[in-house]
Write a protein that binds this DNA or RNA. Structure first.
Lengths: 215, 215
DNA sequence: CGGTAAGCTGACGGCATGACAGGACAAGTT
DNA sequence: AACTTGTCCTGTCATGCCGTCAGCTTACCG
């Protein structure tokens, strides 16, 4: 699919080149997590990687191009998220467990990729199609299987058929994403981080099954 | 409270100065809604306002400073949002209406201030205290009265007392905020924008009362 | 009309960007 | 070991934006 790694001017990158390229990506990722996106400069990334700005431009058209690369790597990792839904049960108490694990797993993934997801989210919100697509890949890795699960429940009469499964799944995933992005906000509302899961999980359960969590 | 408007070097701005300042803010707002935040340059804003970059720096320390100004204006407007909750009833059918109006009003506000809220959200996510505070002001204008409403319901035994009212209110407002920010995402899930309200409103109702929407 | 403070800008040093040509280097060939 | 070839890196340069300052213009007031 991706073929070989190429430089901006079309050369094929060899072993050494790929190492340099990767080091630049790593340093950029590091920079993104320590300074505002707007202030990330090519020269800083290059300096941190022990190389020169010119080298950076050998491998990436600009900062955004390199960020996209990092984001795509992350998007690939996001396939693991569908394991949070696939083969899980939503019936009774096990349903409550499923929704707790979903919340936990999703928040953990977001926390792990905090910095890059922030930039992806901004790019998507600004209407950049490439970032938008990446964000959708990540969210879909959960939203798609979740929508399927809801449809299945609806078929079995265990969920409200009047609700659009895709819309419900999307809303709930949005909820998780925004909670993940703004954990700090909750703290300032006087909500401890450990209270977050017990709050989100019932909401998810409620949204999907339309029933209160069993005790 | 704010006293007089002052230039960066301490002079008091007069009529003409305030006009220029305002024109710069207006142009910046315009730029934010048409190009990526990262690419907004002082020189472009100044050019659009028919003045010079030096003038911009008379009134604002940098682009971020000016953005903060715009954001603060918007935060003031957000007090109107509390009308979406205050004095509304959550009982029975009127509760369903309340939650629909809440969703509608909130989404409309977010849409109206789309561009600036995007930047505020990014700044907050990156840990900038000033942006964070502004975001909290906006969200609190709904979350606070909502939490109060939930507490009242709990006292009357019409809502689950085991739930932390502030946490529930926060989660629901987060849900609305993220849905507002990513309306495009829903479209790509095959969810029409008009389906969004009928999906979100029951979720809100459900989250607050713990009951299914009455028909 | 002169004084004073507000308002604006040209010009400048500094730094990031992005392009290129050429030197350094590794690996294989003779 | 010298040579060749293709990869890889960097010095350098033109360009353009940033952020500051001195100094000019404008408005107001006694």
């Amino acid at each position: 699919m991706t073929g070989q790694v190429r430089t901006v001017d079309g050369r094929v990158a060899g072993r050494r080149g790929q190492e340099t390229r990767q080091k630049l990506l790593d340093c950029l990722r590091e920079m993104l997590s320590t300074s505002p996106y707007r202030d990330v400069k090519v020269i800083d990334v290059a300096r941190m990687a022990g190389t020169s700005p010119a080298t950076f431009y050998q491998y990436f058209p600009d900062v955004e191009g390199a960020v996209l690369e990092i984001a795509e790597e992350m998007a690939k990792d996001s396939v693991e998220l569908k394991e949070l839904i696939d083969g899980k049960s939503w019936a009774g108490k096990s349903g409550a467990t499923t929704s707790e694990e979903l919340v936990d797993g999703f928040l953990a993934f977001w926390r792990k990729n905090d910095a890059i997801l922030r930039v992806v989210t901004l790019g998507a919100a600004e209407g950049d199609k490439r970032f938008f697509k990446i964000r959708m890949t990540v969210l879909n890795s959960v939203a798609k299987p979740l929508a399927d699960a809801i449809k299945e429940l609806q078929a079995k009469g265990q969920a409200d058929k009047a609700q659009d499964a895709a819309a419900v799944a999307g809303s709930l995933i949005s909820l998780l994403a925004s909670a993940a992005e703004h954990q700090k906000a909750f703290t300032s509302w006087g909500v401890k981080v450990k209270d977050l899961k017990p709050t989100l999980a019932p909401l998810v359960y409620l949204g999907i099954t339309g029933k209160k969590v069993p005790r």
